[in-house]
Design a protein around this nucleic acid. Sequence first.
RNA 1: GGCCCCGUAGCUCAGGGGAUAGAGCGACCGCCUCCUAAGCGGUAGGUCACAGGUUCGAAUCCUGUCGGGGCCGCCA
Length: 611
Amino acid sequence: MRSPVPACPCPPRIDAARRLWHPPADIQGTKMNLFADIRSLVVASLEDMVASGALPAGLDMTNVAVEPPRDAAHGDMATNAAMVLAKPAGMAPRAIAEALAARLAGDPRIVSAEVAGPGFLNLRLTAESWRGVVKAALGAGRDFGRSAMGRGTKVNVEFVSANPTGPMHVGHTRGAVFGDALAALLDFAGHEVTREYYINDGGAQVDVLARSAYERYREANGLSPEIAEGLYPGDYLIPVGEALKAKYGVSLLDRPEADWLTEVREFATEKMMEMIREDLALLGVKMDVFTSEKAITASGKIEEAIETLRGMGLIYDGTLEPPKGKLPEDWEEREQTLFKSTAFGDDVDRPVKKSDGSWTYFAPDIAYHWDKVSRGYDLLIDVLGADHGGYVKRLKAVVAALSNRRVDLEVKLIQLVKLFKNGEPFKMSKRAGTFVTLRDVVEQAGADVTRFVMLTRKNDAALDFDFDKVLEQSKDNPVFYVQYAHARVCSVLRKAAEAGIAADDATLAAADHGKLAHEAEIALAKKIAEWPRLVEIAARGQEPHRIAFYLYELASDLHGLWNRGNEDASLRFIQDDPSTAQAKIALARAAGVVISAGLGILGVTPAEEMR
RNA sequence: GGCCCCGUAGCUCAGGGGAUAGAGCGACCGCCUCCUAAGCGGUAGGUCACAGGUUCGAAUCCUGUCGGGGCCGCCA
């Protein structure tokens, strides 16, 4: 009787990697990041040189970098130390490099240190160093690459924040995917992250929603709806009308708006938020906090925030210059209550009160950001559509003012998603019924494809989303390429089990990795070694797309090694000798672990099998 | 008029002070008796929009120009 093949040990669900995480003490710091380790070695050596008088005192080492060289022929790592320090030290770069090379050569991890070009120091590391990375990856599992970089930093990532007046569309989808991946990335880099959704339920648009829903309510009661110009015509409000009928019967019919507006507004808004939560769930996005604009307003926080600013001398009554260029038809000069955002780098001061004395849209935003500041975050991130670019400076000004410049606000603008179908631009129009919702996209393309495609572009570059390419699920689609690499690793593990080779992570971590000696194998280990470094670079730049590109490269290296096995049987992972096999499988599994962790950050499922 | 983003191979895009600028697609030539060919190897393809400047060093930073997109009080 054959024993059943054990399931791939990769965690099948993505949730586990995405929850809030605090690094245990033993993997805090940088000891799993070989590039950081060697940089520490370089800096320590430079400090020794200072101590011994070989270099002058007082040098700033912050620009000293240890990086993978562009050309692998140059070695494993390169440092710019000599070039960076040449000028402040008043010495020739090559002289510094030579002296540094002599010191580094004494380290057991360093095979060679050669001066090259204008003063680069090219380092080669022992194969044993790279094998150590495989062991570390297997020991840490999907925690390999986690960083303590953000330790002690509380970050609030506000994203989506779609108006609760209808279903989410493609533009929201990109913002949702980006914000969620950014939050996961910052979490992985050791920050304490809150995912937050700001519900714009306080403005005139929810009154419009209420009136639109009321017409559907009339319709549900057998009357013909009057969807006037300016109301939301979408079918998605029909069920809301029916639900209103179920709750209120005929009691709201033939009553003045003032009698039903508040109740219908709250009812419809809640229904819209239910729908939006379902949409987010389809994408695999889970918020930690929903904050209501209406609640902020009702709590009196707007007045508090404005009075706080007034106390700082940043609120005054005045008039603004008319905008340059084309003047609005109905422009007239009016006195408004203004926030002195120019004191914090804005171009003009911004109105917080309209001429009729009511708050502008900006006022609740002031209160909301004040609320976020008061919740003790060290960093606020707003993920907004690119059409909100004009609000960035005033928002930054608010946060700077209300936090005494303690809290930084980063605004990540999400550029347009351009839809294509049959190679032609696909215009969206609510009226023409060609309105593409998040649900449309996810139901057709799947959450994994949607997420990965939207993360293979910088947030500030426009994204072409071609339905045909995505629906084809062709090999053009990088998500399959990466998932397939992971599936191949799982396949190797299944084969190992069939062959009776123990291949659990603990066994693999303890395998005789000295059997990994071929340059193609060491090359893959080197790529794996870059992962912890990449995580920190991506997190520092708040650029989750870097994860996607790295995973593609890692998958490419794994596929390459796999195919080498076709020509050279000694490069296959499954070998007759169990000890040799375990060493090779360990390498594959280490790559799989990193792919799994990286896809976890992106919110994409690491497929175990693809046929 | 002002502010923000973008301009890199035929196409879609990475790289954003460092060495000979990369990938995918498309084109061309190869690779399945073999752990999954949704894979791999190779060839061809560049004035990094343009002009100045900073620097030992610029696709990368600064200024300007050109081209594309977005935004600019009493909407949200």
